[in-house]
Each structure stands twice: as structure tokens, then as C-alpha cells.
Design a protein around this nucleic acid. Structure first.
Lengths: 131, 131
DNA sequence: CCGTATCCTAAATGATACTG
DNA sequence: CAGTATCATTTAGGATACGG
């Protein structure tokens, strides 16, 4: 994705906070758009790029590709390339990935106690119930 | 802070994800830069604007002000204005705020198992140990 | 002391076209 | 199928100046 400019206050503050506590880097990671959705999607058995892409409907190739790389980088999923033509690649959660999923579930329970209920918008009106 | 453009895919995707699961809005909130730091800072007893600002060193007025409003909006802190001149305002965690703090602590434990250790940069080299 | 208003920069997200 | 490269858009974060 995008590069970072080492001299900006923006960058320095982010680096400062990440060094201060690993939590900040963690939150920055899991809060990236579609990140937890991709994680849960794989957990539910969608183990191929196309399956995930179809299940998440509005995600772009670029973002899905990026999130899969991040999930793999932090050891939350495994990537198995079968080196076939046409390409076949499978994704699966690791133990750490399952651990994170549990934590996020707890977080989700809590979030429902502080986030007000939404009224569906035009964008979701005609979709079948998510999660 | 900044306004959102209702017609963008960017906006629609965010809205879609927030409606899909409260977790997404929650993560978006707590991952805002300095958000958890302000929360922990107040928990540690820094109950005034200036105390928080000094403790967090590099945070700007604008951001601190915004984060305090968000924390109050979601019922995580209380804001007590003494209506004095010069102004005196005190902040304190609510029960929900304490709950979140516990969840974040768990999250922090986990994050240390998947995030590699950092070497301090020039920016933090001369500061005393944070958190 | 406790902020707000304005403006600017940088990073995240997304559209489109393309490839082995 | 499973992506990558390039480019454009949108949003978050921050600097500065100022106000009750």
C-alpha cells in the first residue's frame, strides 16, 4: 500500500505510540478496514481468495490482498500455495488467529453495550443478514 | 474534526461495516491515535486537560479535545465543569471506561505475543520509560 | 485553563487495467 | 484464479493562531 514519510510528526507520533505499548500497533492493525471481517470470513470456512471476496461483497482486490498479507505476516493465518495453473491458494486460521477471534468476540459483546443501534441504510437494505 | 462525504465508496463501505457489526465501530473508535492513551492516562489519575496534555507529551490540543469528546460521547468518561474563571474541568472514568480498560489490558497481553519487539528510535531515546 | 477555527499534510482506501 | 501496478479520492492527524 502507501509508503510512510519518516520525517512527519504524524509518523513520529505513530512510531512513539507503537514503541510505548504493543497495544497501539495491535489496534492499528485490527482496526484496518475489512481486517476482522476477513479473519472471521476465513474462520467460517471461506478459504480461497475468491470465496472471501464474494462473501465480503464490497471489498476490493487491492485491500483483500493487503489484509491477507498482514494476517499472514502477524501469524494469524497460513497461506498454502498449491503451485497449480490456474492458481490455487488456500488460507486457514492459526492458533493465534483463533485466539484473536475469541478476544474480538469479547470486544464485540462489550461494543454492543456502548454503541447505539443503527437503522439500516439504503446500502444494506437489500442484503441478507450479515454475521 | 473532518467532515465525511456521503457519496463516496469509502464512506459507504465504512457505514456498511459498522451496521454489519458493532465491533467495527468500536475498533474504529479505540484505534484512533491517542485514544487508549488518554483513557489510561485518566485512569492513572490525570484528571485535567493540562495534566493529560503534559503526560502525553506530543499530543496536540485539537486531538486531545476530540478524544475527550469521543470518550464522553460513548460514556467512557465523565466531564465535570466547575464553571470557574479560570476554567476548571475534571475528567474521570466511568464503569464502562473501567470495563474497556480491562479488555484492552487483555488485548495488550495478546499483542505482545504477536508483535515483534522494537528498538527505540531517536524520538523516544531520551524519554523516561512510558507505561 | 480549556479549549475552538482554519488550514495544510500525509496516510488509508478504492477504481481501473492488466498478468502468469 | 489470484493477484499486482498505477493512479485518484477521501479522511485522519497536526500546526498555528486565537477566544472566553
Amino acid at each position: 500500500m502507501s509508503e510512510r514519510k519518516l520525517s512527519s510528526t504524524n509518523y513520529r507520533n505513530q512510531a512513539y505510540l507503537e514503541e510505548k505499548c504493543a497495544l497501539n500497533e495491535m489496534l492499528d492493525l485490527v482496526s484496518k478496514r475489512w481486517f476482522t471481517d476477513v479473519l472471521f470470513c476465513i474462520e467460517e470456512g471461506n478459504n480461497r481468495f475468491k470465496l472471501i471476496k464474494d462473501d465480503l461483497k464490497y471489498i476490493s482486490d487491492t485491500i483483500l490482498s493487503d489484509r491477507l498479507k498482514l494476517l499472514e505476516k502477524y501469524g494469524l493465518i497460513t497461506r498454502t500455495d498449491y503451485d497449480e495453473i490456474p492458481p490455487k491458494v488456500e488460507y486457514a486460521l492459526t492458533g493465534k488467529g483463533e485466539e484473536l477471534s475469541v478476544l474480538l468476540d469479547q470486544m464485540c459483546q462489550f461494543s454492543e453495550t456502548i454503541i447505539p443501534v443503527k437503522t439500516p441504510s439504503f446500502y444494506t437494505k437489500n442484503t441478507t443478514a450479515p454475521i
